Simulated scan of single mutants.
Amino acid sequence: MAKTTTRKPPIRKKTSKKTNSFFSAKFFIISISFLLIVTAVFHYRNAILYYFSFKSDKIYKEDKMAQARIFQVLKNHQDKVVGFDVSQFQGNINWKEIDSVEHLVPLQFVFIRATAGNDKVDSKFKENWKNAKEHNFIRGAYHYYRPNENSLEQANNFIKTVKLQKGDFPPVLDIEQLPKNQSIDSLKVGLKRFLKKIDEHYKVKPIIYSGEKYYTSFLKEEFSEYTFWVANYNFWVEDIKDDWLFWQFSEKASIEGITEKVDLNIYNGTPKMLLYLTVE
């Protein structure tokens, strides 16, 4: 009589709690990432269709998402005034060709770099300053402040270079760098000396330009008597804040007449309000 063989049940490997947690976390991250992508595509659908479908032969082929954001931001601010800013880094500009951003939004003002530090004069300032006026742009001149150089010498450099006329913007102080050889408190003293000197000479309170982080860290409260032109290129930021006079929202715009990429700016008001801001 044959023996009956009893089979042992197969040994099942136990799945550790750590493994389950790992896969759960991985699935969660993938799901959230997918959701964010879908949300972004849906939100920017009109902008993406515009730039991907109709502009694929343009210069911004390598930078479509940045252009899509420009489209979206401009769409959100149709009641505002749009302008740009230039320096010698934009090279030779054909001012006759400049009139709008992709024939969608007219360009009405321009900020032009005049000086930097205590001795630098922008090599294209004189030419750009003259052409901006001749082509009916409201123009403004800005000084790039170097924290480790004498503030009054910097103010004198700007004053010597820039002659404002009726209809121009007030002077602009561009502060972006942190000091290397002094404290933040010393920097603030220098900035105040610069601003006071400029105010006394031109009889108009200057505008301060800076990045949003710099602005919120110490400029906003310490220099609250001034108005601000703030730079923020964050992809998810689409609306100008109430306390920003100007918003530089992109550094990657393409404008006919300028071969290099250009910064775009929005004024926080109407065309009529913009005229009230200019020098009388």
Rank of each mutant, 00 (worst) to 15 (best):
I30L: 11
A2F: 11
L164G: 06
I240D: 11
K124D: 12
N148I: 02
E97H: 02
Y60E: 14
E238W: 08
L35A: 15
A68Y: 07
S217D: 15
F52S: 11
E225K: 14
F34T: 11
P271R: 12
N156P: 00
Q182V: 01
P170V: 04
F235S: 12
I30T: 07
W229I: 10
P171K: 08
F228C: 14
I48A: 12
I70F: 07
D79V: 09
K213T: 12
Q90L: 09
F223R: 09
R69E: 09
K58M: 11
D99E: 12
I198L: 10
R193N: 15
D79I: 08
W95R: 05
G117E: 08
K192L: 11
G257D: 05
T115H: 12
F89N: 13
N94E: 09
E62T: 14
W247I: 02
D239I: 05
E176D: 10
Y145R: 00
D99A: 07
G211V: 03
Y276W: 00
N94V: 02
N156S: 03
E238C: 00
V279A: 03
T270R: 09
L219W: 04
N156V: 00
Q154K: 03
R69S: 09
Y267E: 08
A66R: 15
V73F: 07
N118W: 00
L36K: 04
T39Q: 06
T161K: 06
K252V: 04
L107T: 02
D185Y: 03
T5N: 04
G83N: 10
N268F: 05
Y142Q: 03
L74E: 12
D57R: 09
L274C: 06
N234Y: 11
E221P: 00
G140N: 06
S250W: 05
Y276R: 12
L35R: 03
F228N: 13
L187Q: 11
Y209C: 07
T161L: 03
A116K: 14
A155M: 05
K180I: 06
G140Y: 06
N268E: 04
E200V: 03
L173S: 05
E127W: 00
E62I: 04
F52Y: 11
S123V: 07
F228Q: 13
R193L: 14
E225S: 15
W244A: 08
P147R: 02
Y267D: 07
L191K: 01
P206Q: 08
K197E: 13
Y233L: 01
L152F: 00
K180L: 12
Y215C: 07
E280W: 02
P147T: 03
